[in-house]
Amino acid sequence: MSDLVVVFERLGYHGVPGPYLETVALLPGLVDDDTRGELAAGLIATAAVDEVAPAALDAALASRRYLVRDGALHRGDLADELTSVAPTRRLARLIPSGDATPLEPGALDAALNEAALAAAATLVGAGERMLAEAVSYAKVREQFGRPIGEFQSLKHQLADVRIALSFARPLVWNAALRVDEPDEDRAISAAKVAAGDAALLAARVSLQVHGAIGYTAEHALRIWLGLAPALAAAWGTPDFHRARIARDILTKER
Rank of each mutant, 00 (worst) to 15 (best):
V7K: 14
E9S: 12
R10H: 08
R10C: 09
L11H: 15
G12S: 11
G15V: 12
V16I: 14
V16D: 11
P17Q: 10
P19G: 04
E22G: 00
T23M: 01
T23K: 02
T23V: 01
T23D: 04
A25L: 08
L26G: 00
L27D: 00
P28E: 09
L30S: 05
V31P: 05
V31R: 03
D33T: 08
R36D: 04
A40W: 04
G42Y: 02
A45N: 03
T46R: 04
A47Q: 07
A48W: 00
A48D: 01
D50L: 12
A53I: 10
P54T: 04
A55N: 13
D58N: 11
D58G: 10
A60Q: 07
L61I: 15
Y66V: 01
Y66M: 07
L67F: 03
D70K: 04
L73E: 04
L73D: 04
L78P: 00
A79L: 13
L82M: 05
V85Y: 13
V85F: 07
A86P: 05
P87V: 12
P87N: 10
T88V: 10
T88D: 14
T88Q: 13
R90M: 12
L91W: 08
A92H: 07
R93G: 10
L94G: 01
I95H: 11
P96R: 01
S97Q: 13
S97F: 11
S97L: 07
G98R: 07
D99I: 14
D99Y: 12
A100G: 03
A100R: 05
T101F: 11
P102W: 02
P105V: 10
P105N: 10
D109H: 09
A110R: 09
E114S: 11
